[in-house]
């Protein structure tokens, strides 16, 4: 498992293509996270999981078990003002927690800044 995070338009997909030789990147959803080699917009999938009251940690563990080589591309969303809206607040917290969990079990975590991959694990 590999995690690639960064702000919007930071060049995460480009990084994954050039550094990992991955050509096909698909939107993260309940099916693709368990079967595809590279999924993107995991932060949006987390939003969906919250809405559906899913056990996010369990889904992450399933990914690790059934699709252990998956590369996860996702947006950093927690570096702004804490939102007034409860759901928005919860989403940011859940995204942060999910990245921490994924980071723990991933063999590498890369943060992309201005298109440059900075390896933090």
């Amino acid at each position: 498992m590999r995690l690639v995070v960064g702000g919007r338009y930071s060049g995460k997909s480009e990084f994954v293509k050039s550094e990992y030789g991955i050509s096909e990147i698909v939107q993260a959803n309940y099916d693709t996270v368990l079967s595809e080699s590279c999924v993107r917009d995991f932060h949006l999938f987390i939003k969906e999981m919250i809405k559906n009251n899913d056990d996010i940690n369990k889904i992450i563990d399933d990914m690790y078990r059934l699709n252990p080589d998956v590369t996860i591309i996702s947006d950093e969303v927690g570096l702004g003002v804490v939102p007034m809206d409860k759901f928005e607040r919860m989403w940011r917290d859940e995204v942060g927690r999910a990245y921490s969990r994924i980071g723990e079990i991933s063999k590498s975590v890369v943060r992309v800044v201005c298109g440059i991959g900075c390896r933090i694990k």
């Binding site: 960064g6 919007r8 932060h43 950093e76 969303v77 570096l79 702004g80 003002v81 940011r92």
Partner: peptide, 9 residues
Amino acid sequence: TNEIFSDGI
């Protein structure tokens, strides 16, 4: 330059 891309908005 400026990092303005990570607030989730």
